[in-house]
Design a protein around this nucleic acid. Structure first.
Lengths: 211, 211
DNA sequence: CTTTACAAACAAACGCGCATGTATGTAAAT
DNA sequence: ATTTACATACATGCGCGTTTGTTTGTAAAG
């Protein structure tokens, strides 16, 4: 049953999708290549045609993952527009959480991203990806400091860690609680709270009013 | 080589320690019973004498784990002493992070605790343990609200999630960054920041003295 | 105080299933 | 006709659970 070029590319994607789903539902180590192939409606022969082994398909999953929120922040970093950095982080973070809650695909990807044991195949990849996000957020926080809107009692580095802790921590807590709360609702509220706590308080008098 | 009662109990502990170490360094699924036995200076025969299988030793590891910070909070919850709830949470959290950074044993335990894939053997255990911690913290936050020191714009539930997100998120970020920052120093600072942001701001001008 | 009779505490060997990797077959596309 | 895109069959190894064997503590019997 030989397929055409287009169909062939489709089976490759099917395998990628299947692996993505199984990796997050049953875990990477517990997922067998046979399961991936059957989930993709193919056999292990097809798998080995496209991928070297399990870690190969894993890195393929990683590579096609580009978080939309990261793009948003990247453009905000690159852009000359005088956007409020703290508000950009708050909004993109909130959007990201909403997307995660509504789109299962993104859930799986991020779950694979933050899960896994230390020093396995993917640990180095995760570390570098994490560092990349850190540097991006840090540039935003530094910009916030330069614009004089970052609170004095936190360095940009600390504020960045606080932001990452909030996002990733929320997702982790959401999973550990068995989705017991609304990720987007609670997340938005806590992100707003964090954002305002990171913001330098103006002098006495007016307080709490947003722009 | 029959051992005496005391020696026998020691081998059991050796196996437990060995499993604990290997589970966090190489991951649970990637650790074989043979490795555990050899690390403990014994054979798989000894393992099967004391434990049913891998999940059995895992639950044994869980059972002998009682976080000191939890005890501290428990006594604070039970106690009638009018301690400042937010300060108790801040201090115990800070202490916990310090202990984690200095004592590798606690590191491993907590790493095993928050790692692992969803719906594996230990997932239910982790969920229930997490819920237990949540309820404890929630009682503290409710007490804070009742005493009128919790900020109005967050419910006790949200404040609890914020606290858990901060602690667990910090640890996760610490690991993902490859211990790139000081867990205790940064953690203490961010915990203090969070604590003060959770605290209700006193009214304008005069008044606002603490008890 | 011996001796006996177990039972505890393992070690070593065995067999099984299962995932992996490879090698081969094969029909359709080019 | 040759290559592509798989499916099928086969070989290998590895971890697991069980069984069996061996040594030693230890308690009761004599």
């Amino acid at each position: 049953m030989r397929r055409s070029k287009a169909d062939a590319e489709q089976t490759r994607l099917n395998i990628l999708d299947a692996a993505e789903r199984l990796f997050c539902t049953r875990g990477i180590a517990q997922t067998t290549l046979e399961q991936i192939a059957r989930e993709a409606g193919a056999t292990r022969g097809a798998f080995y045609w496209y991928f070297k082994d399990k870690s190969d398909v894993l890195s393929a999953i990683y590579q096609r993952y580009k978080s939309p929120q990261l793009c948003r922040i990247e453009t905000a970093v690159a852009g000359e527009l005088p956007e409020d950095p703290l508000e950009v982080l708050e909004v993109t973070g909130s959007e990201f959480l909403q997307m995660l809650e509504t789109e299962p695909v993104q859930q799986r990807l991020h779950l694979i991203l933050i899960s896994g044991t230390p020093n396995d195949d993917a640990a180095k990849w995760r570390e570098s990806k994490n560092a990349e996000i850190y540097r991006l957020l840090l540039r935003m926080m530094e910009r916030a400091r330069d614009e004089g809107i970052l609170s004095d009692d936190l360095t940009p580095e600390e504020a960045t860690i606080a932001q990452m802790v909030m996002i990733n921590g929320l997702i982790g807590e959401w999973y550990r609680s068995g989705q017991a709360f609304s990720l987007h609702e609670t997340g938005t509220k806590l992100l707003r709270h964090l954002s305002s706590s990171l913001r330098k308080k103006p002098a006495e008098g007016a307080e709490g009013t947003r722009t």
